[in-house]
C-alpha cells in the first residue's frame, strides 16, 4: 500500500512521564505496554498499570496524539488469561491500536474488539506479501511493523504488493535478523523476549569492575569485557564479543544503533506510512531528544528537504556510540 498523506512519527514510552515527554516533543503516536509479560519490554519498574494507561490515553488524545498498546509476546499455552486481560484493558482504555504478533491475541482482538485497530508487531516477522496478506485477511490487520531485514527498494516493492500500511523502524537498538524467532538468550538465561518479554533479564546481568576494566556477564557467562573508557553496549548475547581462535570480535552483531534519519525522504517515496523510534526501556531524556530531532526531520522531509544533521545530533544517544542504516542500505550486497 502506498500513501500520499503525512508520515506518522511513532515514539516509545516506558513510563507515563515518557509518554507525556514524547507527546510534548511532537509524537504523532506513542506506543507502550502493560507492567507484565504480555509485552516485549518487561523490565523492573517499567511500563503501565491499567489506570496509568487510561490517563496516558486521555493525555495523548487531549494533545492530538494516538496511543498504541504493545501486547506483542506469545501467549503461554494453558495460561492465556494475562494476554486476554491485556487486550480487553487496552480496548477499554480507548487505545487507538493494539500491536500484536500471536495469532491468539490477534484473533481475540479481531473477534472481541473489532473497532480497535490491529497492527502486526515486528515480532511476527512478516516481510512477504503472502504472510502480510494472511494477517490482513484473517484478522483485519491494518498495519504491519516491518522487520529490520529489508532494503528501502524491497520495502517499496512490498508496498506495491500489499493493501495494508507499513511502519518502519528509523532509530534505536537493532536485533539480529530473526525477529520474533530469537531464542539465543534463553540458552543462557532460560527466558526469551518472545515468551517472557526480556532477552537479558536484569537479575541475571552483572557488570563487574576490576583493574582491566569492566566485565559484562549474563547468567554467569562473560559476554564482553570493556577497557576503561571504552563505549559499552546492551548486555545481550547477540552483542557479545567472543574469541574464536586468536581473534576476538562481535560474532552476531556489533553494538551499534540504527539511525535512518537521513533516509526519511526515501521511506516516503517507498510508501511507508509510519516511522518508528525504538527505546521503551530508555529514559525521558532520550525520548525527548530523539523525538524532537525526528519531528524536525520528518517535517523537513514533508517539505521535500532532507535532514542529514540528525546523525550528529543523535550520536551521543546511540548504543556503543556508533550508528548504522542497517539493512535499509544493503551495502554488503
Amino acid at each position: 500500500m502506498t500513501t500520499s498523506s503525512r508520515m506518522e512519527l511513532v515514539c516509545p514510552a516506558g513510563t507515563p512521564s515518557a509518554l507525556r515527554a514524547a507527546v510534548q516533543a511532537g509524537a504523532d503516536s506513542v506506543y507502550c505496554g502493560f507492567r507484565d509479560e504480555t509485552n516485549a519490554r518487561n523490565f523492573p519498574g517499567l511500563n503501565f498499570s491499567p489506570q496509568e494507561l487510561a490517563e496516558g490515553v486521555r493525555f495523548a488524545h487531549a494533545h492530538g496524539s494516538k496511543v498504541l498498546v504493545a501486547i506483542n509476546t506469545f501467549a503461554r499455552a494453558g495460561d492465556t488469561d494475562p494476554w486476554r486481560r491485556a487486550a480487553d484493558t487496552a480496548a477499554s482504555c480507548g487505545a487507538n491500536a493494539v500491536i500484536a504478533a500471536d495469532i491468539a491475541v490477534l484473533d481475540h482482538m479481531a473477534t472481541q474488539h473489532p473497532d480497535t485497530r490491529l497492527h502486526l508487531s515486528v515480532q511476527a516477522a512478516a516481510a512477504t506479501p503472502e504472510s502480510i496478506g494472511f494477517y490482513a485477511d484473517a484478522f483485519n490487520v491494518r498495519r504491519v511493523v516491518l522487520p529490520r531485514v529489508l532494503s528501502v527498494q524491497e520495502i517499496a516493492a512490498l508496498n506495491r504488493a500489499i493493501t495494508v500500511e507499513t511502519e518502519a523502524f528509523v532509530f534505536g537498538g537493532l536485533c539480529v535478523m530473526i525477529e520474533g524467532r530469537c531464542y539465543l538468550s534463553s540458552y543462557a538465561a532460560g527466558r526469551s523476549p518472545n515468551l517472557n518479554g526480556v532477552c537479558s533479564p536484569p537479575e541475571m546481568v552483572s557488570y563487574d569492575e576490576d583493574r582491566d576494566g569492566t566485565a559484562a556477564r549474563l547468567a554467569g557467562f562473560t559476554i564482553d569485557r570493556y577497557a576503561p573508557g571504552e563505549p559499552a553496549g546492551y548486555p545481550t548475547l547477540c552483542k557479545g564479543r567472543f574469541k574464536a581462535g586468536d581473534k576476538a570480535g562481535y560474532l552476531f552483531e556489533d553494538p551499534v544503533s540504527l539511525n535512518a534519519g537521513s533516509m526519511i525522504v526515501a521511506f516516503r517515496a517507498a510508501g511507508v506510512t509510519a516511522l518508528k523510534i525504538e527505546g521503551r526501556q530508555r529514559g525521558k531524556g532520550y525520548v525527548t531528544e530523539v523525538v524532537r530531532a525526528f519531528r524536525k526531520a520528518v517535517d523537513a522531509a514533508e517539505q521535500g528537504e532532507d535532514a542529514t544533521e540528525i546523525d550528529s545530533i543523535l550520536a551521543s544517544l546511540s548504543e556503543g556510540g556508533r550508528q548504522t542504516t542497517g539493512a535499509y542500505r544493503k551495502i554488503w550486497r
Binding site: 533479564p201 537479575e203 552483572s206 557488570y207 548486555p235 529514559g283 531524556g285 544517544l317 546511540s318
Partner: peptide, 20 residues
C-alpha cells in the same frame, strides 16, 4: 535532563551489583 543509558554506554557513569 540526562539519559542514564547513554551516559552508561559512553562510560561517563559506571554501575555494578544487582542490575535489576
Amino acid at each position: 535532563s540526562l539519559d542514564g543509558d547513554a551516559l552508561f554506554f559512553h562510560r561517563a557513569i559506571s554501575v555494578s551489583g544487582r542490575t535489576e
